[in-house]
Every structure is written in C-alpha cells, then in structure tokens.
Simulated assay, not measured.
Amino acid sequence: MIPQIIENLEMNVVGISIVMKQHETHKIRALWQQFSPRKNEITNLLNNTSIAMQIFSVNENGEPEDSFNMWACVEVSELSEIPNEMKGFTIPKGEYLKVLHKGMNAGETYQKIMSDWLPNSGYVIDDRPHFQVMGEKYKNGSPDSEEDFYLPIKRIA
C-alpha cells in the first residue's frame, strides 16, 4: 500500500443512490445491477470509469451514523442533463488520500489505512464523500482487480 496525498478538484457525478447500513453489503450488488445497464443513458460522461461513493452523516461526537448513502455513479462534465430516476451530486474539492487497492478484500485495505496510516499521518478523516474509482484494471470479483480508494482528509489543527 503506497498512499498518496492529492488535491482533488471538484467532481460532478450522476448515478443512483441508496441508503444502507454497514452490514447490508448485499444491497451494493443490487445497486450496481440497477445502475450499470442504464449508464449509457448519461450523455455527458467525462470518461469510462465507474465510481462507488459513500456519503456518511456524522453525529455530535464526530462518529459516522449507522446508515449512509451509497452511490453507483460516473463523472460528468455538468449536471444539466440527468436521466429519470437518477441524481446528480458535486463532490467538493479538497485533500484526499489516494490508495491503490488490489484484490477483493476492500475492508482489509480500508482497515490498514485507518489503523496503520491515519494515526501517524498528521491527518484526520474529513466530512466529505469517500469514493472508489474503478477504471480499466477493475475486474469485479477477481483477485487481479485494481481500483483507487479516495478518502477525504484534513490536517490536524
């Protein structure tokens, strides 16, 4: 795992979202089965990659709420043309930790970031969306699969 700190520009995305809880991972497959066949309805794509995005609400203690929004989406040039039953969202610009994830165990990679990298980094997780970019090397369900994780971070004050 070779983490990179990058400044990510604002991104517009269009897709489908659901509300789910951490243990409801079965909903993710259904979300992508609903979105993937409709991807060609989106006319202003910037590239051919898919994006999985999570938007967490944070409680008064700064901890993520039990439920969150999971998106299956793509990056677009603008949010003017959104197909029926889809939504648009703007991911704000900011610093992100970018990590290449290989294989099928995303939870393990995320846990390494949170327990190994984050405590000694001088950063904390910021209150912006988390997302994963699934490009040419992404192979759903394959140990050879690769995708980039983007975690919103900010310097400890």
Rank of each mutant, 00 (worst) to 15 (best):
M1N: 14
I2N: 15
I2P: 09
I5H: 14
I6F: 14
I6N: 15
I6P: 15
N8D: 14
L9F: 10
L9H: 15
M11T: 15
N12L: 00
V13F: 00
V13K: 00
V14R: 01
G15A: 04
S17K: 15
K21H: 13
Q22I: 05
Q22H: 08
H23R: 07
E24D: 13
E24N: 08
H26T: 07
I28R: 03
I28C: 04
R29A: 10
R29I: 13
R29F: 12
A30I: 11
A30P: 02
L31W: 08
L31N: 09
W32K: 00
Q33C: 03
Q33L: 10
Q33F: 03
Q33G: 04
Q34E: 13
F35N: 01
R38I: 00
K39S: 13
I42G: 12
I42S: 13
L46N: 15
N47H: 15
N47F: 12
N47D: 15
T49P: 00
S50L: 08
S50R: 02
I51F: 13
A52S: 14
A52E: 09
M53W: 11
Q54Y: 05
Q54H: 07
I55V: 14
I55H: 11
I55Q: 12
F56P: 04
F56D: 05
V58L: 11
V58H: 08
N59D: 15
N59C: 05
N61F: 07
P64D: 05
S67V: 04
F68P: 09
M70R: 12
M70C: 14
M70F: 10
W71A: 09
W71K: 07
V74I: 13
E75K: 13
V76Q: 06
E78R: 02
E78M: 03
E78A: 13
L79A: 02
P83V: 05
P83T: 04
P83H: 06
N84L: 06
N84H: 05
N84G: 03
E85C: 03
M86S: 05
M86R: 06
K87Q: 12
K87C: 10
K87F: 10
Y96M: 04
L97F: 01
L97Y: 00
L97C: 14
V99D: 02
V99F: 01
L100C: 12
H101D: 05
A106W: 08
G107E: 10
E108L: 09
E108W: 06
Y110R: 01
Q111K: 11
Q111R: 10
K112D: 05
D116R: 01
W117Q: 06
L118G: 07
L118N: 08
L118W: 08
N120G: 10
S121G: 11
G122A: 11
G122C: 09
Y123A: 08
D127K: 14
D127E: 14
R128T: 11
R128P: 11
P129D: 12
P129N: 13
H130G: 00
M134P: 04
M134H: 12
E136N: 13
E136V: 06
K137A: 10
Y138S: 06
K139E: 12
K139T: 03
N140K: 09
G141F: 06
G141I: 04
S142T: 01
P143V: 07
P143H: 04
D144Q: 07
D144P: 03
D144T: 03
S145M: 03
E147K: 07
E147A: 08
D148S: 06
Y150V: 02
P152Y: 13
P152S: 07
K154H: 14
R155G: 11
A157Y: 12
